Computed example of a mutant assay.
Amino acid sequence: MMRSFAIAGLQLNLETADNIDLISRKIDSVMRRFPWVQMVIIGELAGFGPRPSTAETMPGPTENHFGSIAKKHKIWLLPGSLYEQSDGKVYNTTPVLNPEGEVVTRHRKLYPFLPYEQGIEYGEQITVFDIPDVGRFGVSICYDMWFPETTRAMVSAGAEVILHPTMTNTSDREVETVIARASAVQNQCYFVDINSVGEIGYGRSSVIGPQGEVIYQAGCGEEIVTAELDLEQVRRVRERGIMGLGQTLKSFRDAPIKYVVYENGLHGREGLSKLGTLEVPGRI
């Protein structure tokens, strides 16, 4: 049995502005061209760019608009992320919309890009959701993937695919492509990393398979990244090992080691307590 699922990542040329109409037209265009696509993913903060002043409650008008698009095309939709206003706090949040236009879950970014993403709250829990007859998916946003615990926790909760909208227009984008590949092979899962281009992103979106294979990596211009994921391959790789070799998840499960760094919080750990304050560095 093949559990196949077709995705399209939209690596769009976006500005720090209201991009909602542009994104809507691009989704319409993609679905006319690739009617077999079952899910569309867009980069982090694609709707309005990195502007916390655009924060909305959820549900709200922008999320509802994207719900109508998901329903129109009968697709799963991750419309990048939006700044969410909730109880006087602002979160960086990705809604997950099903083909009926309903919100099945929302992921609040666990690790805001501090000290630069000022005023944004930490999320507090991982996000996984099920697509019937396909499999379990996890969601992370941009800086989340720099912390391997995030992907490991989602995979431990059963995720077979990690969906990762990002917004990177800095020189560390090269390193991020390495992290995406490492995350996939260490956790024997698909990793779908979608960035923007133009003012808010340097592109290089990628789809990585469960053996660390680069299924596709985009360039630095606007692109549509399409791929058909075979979730049975995830099962086979986890059962038989990467290239018939390392069965990493089983070893992680079975090893007797307990990582004391995670016990009773991190703040008292000697190696971490000496790091100083999290702040923008000054001139040398």
Rank of each mutant, 00 (worst) to 15 (best):
M1W: 05
A6H: 09
A6V: 07
G9F: 00
I20T: 14
S24T: 15
I27M: 03
P35Y: 04
W36P: 00
I41N: 00
G43V: 01
G47V: 01
F48C: 06
P52M: 05
P52I: 05
P52D: 08
P59D: 15
P59Y: 15
T62L: 09
H73S: 07
P79W: 03
G80V: 00
Y83N: 00
G88I: 01
K89I: 01
K89F: 04
Y91K: 03
P99W: 12
E100C: 05
E102A: 10
E102L: 06
V103T: 14
R108T: 05
L110H: 03
G123Y: 02
E124C: 12
T127D: 07
D130T: 09
P132A: 13
V134K: 13
V134D: 05
D144C: 13
F147W: 14
F147H: 14
T150Y: 12
R152Y: 10
R152K: 10
G158W: 08
E160H: 08
V161M: 04
P165W: 05
T166W: 00
T168W: 14
T170K: 07
R173Y: 09
T177G: 15
V178T: 14
V178P: 02
A182Y: 10
A182V: 11
N195C: 08
E199M: 11
I200M: 15
V214T: 10
I215M: 13
T226L: 00
L229K: 02
D230Q: 06
L231C: 08
E232S: 11
Q233G: 03
V234T: 04
E239R: 12
I242Y: 04
M243Y: 14
Q247S: 08
S251Q: 12
A255L: 05
I257N: 11
N264K: 13
G265Q: 07
G271T: 06
L272E: 12
L272Q: 10
S273N: 07
G276V: 01
V280L: 09
